[in-house]
Design a protein around this nucleic acid. Structure first.
Lengths: 338, 338
DNA sequence: TTGTAAGCGTTATCAT
DNA sequence: ATGATAACGCTTACAA
C-alpha cells in the first residue's frame, strides 16, 4: 500500500508538503503540486481517510438510524440523505433499530465509538425521550430527528405537517362537493393521528360544515364488527358522500366495502387516503392520497445536518421543520372535470 | 474525551493491559479485568474504533453499493444485509450509483480510501465488467455481487434463478388448466429476461405444449399500437387462456385490458406476473406473481461476505449462488378450489 | 499475566 | 513555500 511517505520519498519532498497538496492547501507552488500529483498517480497512491479522520478528529461520517430500512418513508428519506450528504463529501452508516429502544441505544453507542460527526435518526416507537442520546449531545455530535419527533424535546427535527395534510385533503373533498365526510381515524394515542383528525375537523369548521362525532370512526380492519359498522354508516340516510382515511390501508379497506355495497366512487362517495403508498395508483379506481414527501424530509434533514456541522456557533436554537404535504388527486376523489 | 491512556493512568495499569481487556484477550486476570472495567465505566470511556481500525488494518466496515436505495429489491436486501452484518460486528456504508458507471467508479474508489473490508454491490445498468473493481480486488477487498451479475466474471454473486421462477410460474398456469399461455416478454438484450423466457418455453415443452412464437410478445406499455396488438391476440380464436408476464407492471397492464375486453380473470384468462411487487396484493383481482426473495438475497450476500472475510485461504473459487424464487398464488391465477 | 514501545497514515504546529 | 516532528488513540510484538 502506497502512503504519503512513499510519495514524499519518490518526489524528494517532505511528507508535510505532500499532505498539503491533498488538502488543497494554498501554500504550495503549482510546480510542486504537479510533481506530487504525478508521483502519486504513478505510485497509485490513495489517501487513507481513516488516518486523516483519526488525526483531524472529523470522520466526515454521518450515522443514519431508522426502525426498518425497507419501509417506504425510510428508504426514500435515506435515498435523498445519501445523495445530498455524498455531494457534500460525507458518507453515511445505516443502522436499524427494529423499533427497539434497547437496540437503538446500542446503535447510538456504537456510532459514538465510530466517531461519527452527526446522527440523523427516526426514533423507534419505544423511544419517548432523548435520554439515550445524552452522550451524543455531550460529545457535541449534531443530531437531527426526522419523520418522528419527540415532543417537548429541544432538538432539530423534520416532520411533515399532519394537520395541514389532513386539512387540505378534507378541503379537497369539500371542493368536490362532499358535505357529509366520514373520517376513518387512527389511534388517538398517536400524536400524528390526532393531528390528522384535528386537520379534518378544522377544515369542516372553516367551510361551515358541522363536525359530527359519529362521523369520526376508528375503523379496525381486523374486526368484522368494525367493518359492519362502516357498512352501517355508509347506508344511513342521508349517507356519507366522502371519506377521509388517516391511512391508505384504511382507504383501501373502505374502497372494497364501497364496491361491495355497489356505491360508485367517486360519484356516490369520494375517498382520499393518507401516505400516498405506491399501491394507491394501482387500485380501482386509483386512490387519491396525501403525499408525505419522504424525499423532501430526507433532503431537509440532511440540509439541517450540514448547517449544524458548518455552524461555528453550536449554541443556536433547534429548528423544528414542518413540511407541508401534497394532496395527490386521483380518480377516487375527482368529481369535477373543469 | 477519555482514552485508554486515561483508564490506564486511573488504574495504575499499563495501556496494553487496558487494551487487552477491551479486546477480550484471555491474558488478563479476572481481577484486573474488573478494575479496568470499573474505571472505564466511571471515566465514561468509549473505545475509539477508528484508531483501532487504523492500527489493526481492519475497519470492520462493509460498503454496500446499489443503483437506488428506495427500490424494493435494494431496500429489502439492504435491510437483511444490515441486520446480518451488524450481528457479526460489522457496520455498513451505503452508496447509490444512480445507475451510472462513472459514479459507481467514484464510489468504489472512495470506499477503498475508507479502508472498507469488503464491498457488496448490485452493479449499475451501465456496468459491463469488473474493470473498475480491479483496484479493490488487488487490495484484497472481498467483493460480492447481488441481484445483478456480470456474466463471464469469476466473482462471488447471489441472484435469483430467473429460469426456475419462470418455469414454475408457467407450470402453475398449466396446472390450473391453461393450454394457450401468452408470454409478455422483456427486452431480449437483458439476460434475466432471456432467462425468464427460457423458463417459460421449457415449462411448455416439458408439459407437452407447443411453443408458439406468436405467443411470445414484448408488450410495450407506452405504445398504443403494442397495446392494440395485445387486444388482437386476446381476441383470436382459440383465445389465450393464460398470461405469464416478465414483470408485474406488464401483468397489470394486461389485467386492465382483460377487464376492458370483459374477459374474466382467472376464469377466462389466468394471469401471473414476476417480481411480487407490493401492489400485486391490491389489484382486482389480486395478482399472482413470482417472489424474488429479496431479503434472502441480501442475507446470502452477507453470509458469503462473512465467509470471505473469515477465510484464511483467500484463493478459493468464487461462488455463484442462485436462489430459487417462490410462486405466490393469488386470485388472478387460482382456478381450482381443492 | 503485565509492561514497554514502536508503529498505523495522516494532520498540524513550529521552524526555516 | 517547505520541512521536521509531534501527536491522534489504539494494537501488537517483544520483553519482563
Amino acid at each position: 500500500m502506497t502512503t504519503m511517505k512513499d510519495v514524499a520519498k519518490a518526489t524528494g519532498l517532505s511528507l508535510a508538503t505532500v499532505s498539503r497538496v491533498f488538502n488543497g492547501s494554498e501554500k504550495v507552488t503549482e510546480k510542486t503540486r504537479k510533481t506530487v500529483l504525478k508521483a502519486a498517480e504513478k505510485l497509485n497512491f490513495r489517501p487513507n481517510k481513516m488516518a486523516a479522520a483519526l488525526r483531524s478528529g472529523k470522520s466526515r461520517t454521518i450515522g443514519v438510524v431508522v426502525p426498518i430500512i425497507d419501509i417506504d418513508v425510510f428508504s426514500s428519506a435515506i435515498k435523498s440523505i445519501e445523495s445530498y450528504l455524498r455531494e457534500a463529501g460525507y458518507h453515511i452508516i445505516i443502522c436499524q433499530s427494529e423499533e427497539l429502544l434497547e437496540k437503538e441505544g446500542q446503535i447510538l453507542e456504537n456510532l459514538l465509538n465510530l466517531q461519527v460527526d452527526g446522527v440523523i435518526i427516526s426514533v423507534s416507537k419505544e423511544t419517548l425521550n432523548m435520554n439515550h442520546m445524552q452522550e451524543l449531545q455531550d460529545a457535541g455530535i449534531s443530531i437531527v430527528l426526522f419523520d418522528r419527533r419527540l415532543e417537548l424535546e429541544n432538538v432539530n427535527s423534520v416532520i411533515i405537517n399532519n394537520f395541514s395534510g389532513a386539512y387540505r385533503a378534507t378541503t379537497h373533498l369539500i371542493e368536490q362537493g362532499c358535505r357529509r365526510i366520514l373520517h376513518l381515524a387512527g389511534k388517538s394515542s398517536v400524536s400524528i393521528f390526532r393531528e390528522r383528525q384535528r386537520g379534518y375537523e378544522s377544515a369542516l369548521k372553516d367551510h361551515g360544515l358541522p363536525v359530527d362525532e359519529h362521523y369520526v370512526f376508528p375503523l379496525d380492519l381486523e374486526s368484522e364488527a368494525s367493518l359492519d359498522h362502516l357498512r352501517y354508516l355508509l347506508q344511513q340516510d342521508p349517507a356519507p358522500d366522502g371519506i377521509f382515511a388517516h391511512g391508505d390501508y384504511y382507504a383501501f379497506g373502505a374502497l372494497n366495502i364501497l364496491k361491495e355495497l355497489n356505491l360508485r366512487v367517486p360519484e356516490d362517495v369520494a375517498i382520499i387516503g393518507f401516505g400516498d403508498s405506491p399501491f394507491c395508483a394501482y387500485l380501482t379506481p386509483p386512490l387519491s392520497s396525501v403525499n408525505q414527501r419522504n424525499e423532501d424530509i430526507g433532503r431537509m434533514a440532511a440540509e439541517i445536518m450540514l448547517q449544524e456541522l458548518n455552524e461555528a456557533d453550536h449554541a443556536r436554537v433547534a429548528s423544528q421543520s414542518m413540511i407541508p404535504p401534497e394532496v395527490i388527486i386521483r380518480a377516487s376523489s375527482q368529481r369535477l372535470t373543469d
